[in-house]
Design a protein around this nucleic acid. Structure first.
Lengths: 336, 336
DNA sequence: TTGAAAGCGCTAACAC
DNA sequence: GTGTTAGCGCTTTCAA
């Protein structure tokens, strides 16, 4: 039983019960080697009997660490969060953090009120580090945080000057287009993503590279941008086919857009892949299941979450880290 | 400038700069009425000049509150998180919590290691309350937490004895079936969800109710369960059509399953809605956009998140709350 | 190896 | 109204 009636047991209670001083109890629990086996055993037993759980606030006050990291999602619109990609990434981050005994604090920033609130929360005293999912290019947050001495890792795009993790969008697009060319296609369209996001730009760059490398022209006519959403994919493929009647293949730069493309083609009576071959990007963990017959560029979402957490841990430990580019992988399937 | 060289300014620094005592500074910042206007202004100015940010750990240590709540996702499988529903709900919860000045701590529990870890974290000293997304029926967590004196609100299914928020799945299914009957359909199949989840069961119950109320038989032959995923929807509708050749309508109990149904029907050359009318459930925030032509039972995900947060805040404030059932809404569209 | 004691930064009770 | 002070529960010197 705890000494104080209603409160949970404190370290003092544990020490008393174990017949040692508070200092020894603390050392025993924190794995100091300067503790005799006997003392350590007594403390551990007392902990067990009392159901002692350390008070994190008290510990933080003195250690100036919190064992928690913030995952900040800095977004332009709302749509993003309902996409599978987000859930999968958060899941991976959460699991990786748990493995380090750290807590995941999730924050969204969409307006100035959010920004003000976060500005007071994102300090070295409140979190040990921050993971940033920044969807637009000119986000000032990473810089500000680093300036405060808060280790930060950016996910999804190269933020200059800070640690980041990205997937190889260029390489993925190259592989996709090469695959299409191998199939004998020569008019490969691009249902592109937004060009103010690195992911959108990089995929376009890869498409261009592969085309040029094959001696083909990366004609701007072959490109129609969307917003990563399904309807925009459907609209884009229709525009593209109207503009380029002999289009025989298309690379859709997001999962939902690929679905939109497929749906529009199917609706318009276009045979896939006979008339038009389609390759999409697998943005979510399980999209391969959603469209079983679609060849996709697989995005390693889980690995990305793990890598972000790994880099952040290193930075918290004071090490310098190199940015990571995770390889993408072309998953070839018989197109429907 | 802070007194100590490297550390961020403390309340003591603020007080000194404002020319008041630490107590007054504290009162001023916490909005006590027992502070003169002059003193308050001086403190506020000092805060501004120093860039003072309160040390939450120190505050928690004495107030025994943390201004943070845990969102625990207790899951059977992995798939769930990559579904749009999850992201939308987390988003809504995060926003609502931010409005209360509380932090969102996200935790996943899938194995025993997670359970042990959470058991040490989910205490009144670490979080003010917990929001629980429990996907299976027999989760012991809500009971344990309440026993610890930790306010808990369960989302997604009625957990007996505790506060919970659910959407009116029964009513939604009833409305869907009634709509189908109004259209003149008589053989209304059900692509059901897992029957060990309340959401799955309730939708089936609503389907039965509506059929019986119309004097029709809720034949078990008309029901084929899936796992909420798209492929299972496609498989289910095929089984159903084989078993019930004159099937003229179907209610699909999840977003992805509805998509699977539509895709299978379209692939099999079945006209929708002429041959088979389809109604789905809109589990995500934006599914209406995904399948623009599908009539759906709209699930108020955002409202659900807000309501969970609202109830939790009330419970943290010591009030008793009634469980909430959020109304669903039938969104009728011309089926494709 | 260990106990005692000094804080970490804050709130709240207590005097004035 | 306001300053002073006593802790909140923990880690970490500092002596012993």
């Amino acid at each position: 039983m705890a000494a104080r009636p209603d409160h949970p047991p404190t370290l003092e209670d544990v020490a008393q019960r174990a017949g040692v001083g508070r200092g020894t109890a603390s050392r025993a629990l924190n794995g100091s080697s300067q503790v005799s086996e006997g003392a350590r055993a007594a403390v551990l037993r007392a902990v067990e009997e009392l159901g002692y759980i350390p008070n994190q606030a008290a510990r933080s006050l003195v250690t100036r660490t919190t064992d928690s990291v913030a995952l900040v999602v800095s977004e332009p619109g709302e749509r993003v969060f309902s996409e599978p990609f987000f859930g999968a990434l958060v899941r991976a981050v959460g699991a990786a953090l748990a493995g380090q005994g750290r807590q995941l604090v999730l924050s969204f920033v969409s307006d100035d009120a959010d920004r003000r609130r976060l500005d007071r929360f994102l300090t070295p005293l409140h979190v040990d580090g921050v993971l940033l999912l920044s969807l637009h290019d000119d986000d000032p947050l990473p810089g500000r945080l680093e300036a405060r001495g808060l280790p930060t890792v950016v996910g999804g795009r190269p933020a200059q000057g800070s640690a980041w993790v990205d997937v190889d969008n260029v390489g993925g697009a190259v592989a996709a287009v090469e695959h299409l060319l191998t199939l004998g296609r020569r008019r490969v369209g691009l249902v592109a993503g937004p060009q103010d996001m690195a992911a959108g730009r990089d995929r376009r760059i890869g498409w261009e590279q592969a085309l040029r490398a094959a001696g083909l022209k990366a004609d701007a006519k072959l490109v129609e941008p969307g917003d990563f959403g399904e309807p925009s994919g459907a609209a884009a493929i229709r525009t593209l086919r109207r503009r380029v009647p002999d289009l025989d293949a298309v690379l859709a730069c997001s999962d939902p857009m690929a679905v939109g493309v497929l749906r529009a083609l199917s609706h318009d009576g276009v045979r896939v892949p006979d008339d038009v071959a389609v390759v999409g990007f697998d943005d979510s963990a399980g999209s391969a299941d959603l469209v079983p017959a679609l060849t996709t560029v697989h995005q390693p979402v889980v690995e990305m979450g793990q890598e972000m957490v790994r880099l952040l841990a290193a930075r918290i430990a004071g090490q310098n880290v190199e940015p990571t580019v995770l390889p993408t992988r072309l998953v070839v399937r018989a197109s429907a």
